[in-house]
Design a protein around this nucleic acid. Structure first.
Lengths: 380, 380
DNA sequence: TTGTAAGCGTTATCAC
DNA sequence: GTGATAACGCTTACAA
């Protein structure tokens, strides 16, 4: 008899707990201290201090029914007094959710820093998640394969509640992966044609392209060049197609080269675009780094901007108004889109359907780098 | 008697588990599915499949002694076959560590995107953490107070194993907070004089300042201006003091204005610096955005760069070679410093001492925006 | 070497 | 409304 009842008692939290706190000493205590948290105020401490059970405390602290207002108030007060905060791991384990959204970045560091898009997006995303007590779990992948490995790991370990997929490529392996695990909510930032049915927030590139081309067309430009990002990137491809269409529609000649977002890439592509005869009178770049580099080299070659050549960039950043002439851009509220992405992700976590949502639309921000097409076009 | 023995059996994991898997149906199952993970392969499943106990499995999977090589091999194989991965929350709860490093960013989104420093640092940090199966938990704070709230929360909830503190200000409240909780490892990125004894990785600004000033001095510049970042930022202050000293040492006139890292700020400060008589013949900017804006406005004012005025920037980015003339900068391996920060943080997590470590040193990257001081100086 | 079960700090179910 | 306790999935002390 004794061993059984002993065990039963030992099984009770309160006893176990107080036993650990006072009886044992040495190794275990040391470990606990090493582990990190000093302030191990648990729900049991709160329960004891407020003279109720741990479940009552849990209900009270989570604003759930099941306790009287009187006890709720008391528990809340005691918890605050003790400085209690729920242990994240325990909560995650019990609730089977983590309050974390996962993002994997697979681009090279210097590229990431050169592109304002990602940082602004993350800032918006983070700020919105913040409002809902969610965090962002961030990983930097080394290559595409690694990216899939990380996602698989997150899915299997349950380390995040949902995933944000960025920079999708055509036939992206991540789409296949997420379709294998429909229970893991994921939002893809890409054109719906690339997402394989996954919930999507799409950027309104088509509209923007039409707007940009007709803006230049209205200025008299009849030959437009473009320096796009890497061809493997979904949005490069989408924009390219849209440009072809819009140009054809307006009877504008259009030529596109792809580069790697770097100054060097922008310079090379610009030189090549300007070496054909007749040359384009306007060039649109997929990012501001290439636009600036392109504008710079064009000036070095003797072109006046925008007298001889108009320059436009895609996506705005401080850089666009730090250079002279200031760059005309197709800009959009990227931070806002980050907020929206967060809202969509939280919806997905709640089991709601999302389907296809839109990013904030692009708007033309006309500045000094664009102007009427030159009357005549001579080469340099 | 019956109830007691019943309970005892129910307490056993294996029984509980199999009961849940087959007996019950409906609500509970549904909840489990809702929660997220489909592939709930647990350590018990692996144990059952390989015919050993759960502890043997745990030892095997964690490469710990306590199992024979034979069983270890078998367990590993079975686990792999079943696609088992440890549940993050459970592991965190049991081990009292999370395999996560926390970073709070408190800057405005547009500023973050304008400064390559942060993204490169995070990229390096993330890549190194990656090697050690650590993740980065990222939060975006809205204001300084919020930042402290988040840190407090992380400390109390045990959501991270260590903290990286960036952009420290003078008398930063975070330093006081972390000194209250010495059990939470934290690394500050700042000058040791600002860290209040916290482990530090410092940037070698002093050296760099000396190098920059003597470089310009060697070119014949005797009046140097500087456009620094916000005065509240620790590194602005540190650099300012260093500049004063280095300039005094070499008998160079030095004048510093502080701006907010934006193009507008850079333009205003540049105008003011150039409006005094005699004007400086070289200006050093704390970031590339302001440097570019400053260079641009100076050219608009009729100054030739570098003929009349030399321009230097602090920290390198793609932008510095995207603009013409390319910007001379004091650059450093920021990604590398991120890696180093991660290593230091992991040391701290392991209970090792760190003290004061160094970032990668700055190097002068001489490009086209600097040159000999002009013979005579007239105003525009 | 192996298995048993306590323990991590929550949540949620179930009697009372 | 309240308290007891099973459950979450893992690690690890201890018994066998």
């Amino acid at each position: 008899m004794m061993p059984i009842s002993d065990r039963l008692i030992y099984n009770k939290r309160v006893f176990t707990r107080s036993a650990r706190a006072s009886d044992k000493d040495g190794i275990e205590r040391k470990e606990t201290v090493m582990a990190g948290q000093k302030n191990k105020v648990t729900i049991f401490d709160v329960a004891k201090a407020s003279g109720v059970s741990s479940s009552a405390v849990s209900y009270a602290l989570n604003n759930k029914p099941g306790v009287s207002e009187a006890t709720r108030a008391k528990v809340l007060k005691v918890a605050k007094g003790l400085g209690w905060r729920p242990n994240g791991a325990a909560q995650a384990l019990a609730r089977a959710n983590t309050s974390r959204i996962g993002v994997v970045l697979a681009q090279e560091a210097r590229l990431l820093s050169a592109e304002p898009y990602m940082m602004e997006l993350l800032a918006g995303l983070g700020a919105e998640l913040e409002q809902h007590d969610y965090s962002m779990l961030l990983r930097f992948a080394i290559g595409r394969d690694n990216e899939v490995v990380i996602l698989k790991d997150w899915i299997a370990t349950g380390n995040v509640d949902a995933l944000l997929l960025v920079n999708l490529e055509m036939d992206d392996p991540r789409v296949a992966l997420l379709n294998e695990y429909p229970e893991m909510p994921a939002l893809a930032l890409c054109d719906p044609s690339l997402s394989g049915g996954l919930p999507v927030m799409r950027s309104l590139d088509m509209q923007a392209v039409t707007k940009a081309v007709s803006y230049l067309h209205d200025l008299g430009h009849e030959r437009i060049g473009r320096v796009g990002g890497p061809e493997s990137f979904g949005h490069s491809y989408i924009r390219d197609a849209a440009f072809s269409d819009a140009a054809a529609e307006l009877g504008v000649r259009y030529r596109c080269l792809h580069a790697d977002y770097t100054p060097k890439g922008g310079i090379e592509a610009t030189k090549r675009l300007l070496s054909v005869n007749p040359r384009p009178t306007a060039i649109i770049y997929d990012n501001d780094v290439m636009a600036m580099a392109g504008m710079g080299i064009a000036r070095e070659m003797g072109f006046d901007i925008p007298g001889d050549l108009s320059i436009m960039a895609w996506d705005d950043s401080f850089m666009c108004t730090a250079v002279f002439p200031h760059l005309t851009v197709m800009g959009r509220d990227i931070v806002g889109s980050g907020h929206r992405a967060a809202q969509l992700l939280l919806k997905l976590v709640d089991g709601e359907q999302v389907g296809v949502a839109d990013e904030y639309p692009y708007e033309l921000r006309e500045r000094a780098s664009t102007g009427p097409a030159p009357a005549s076009v001579e080469q340099r």
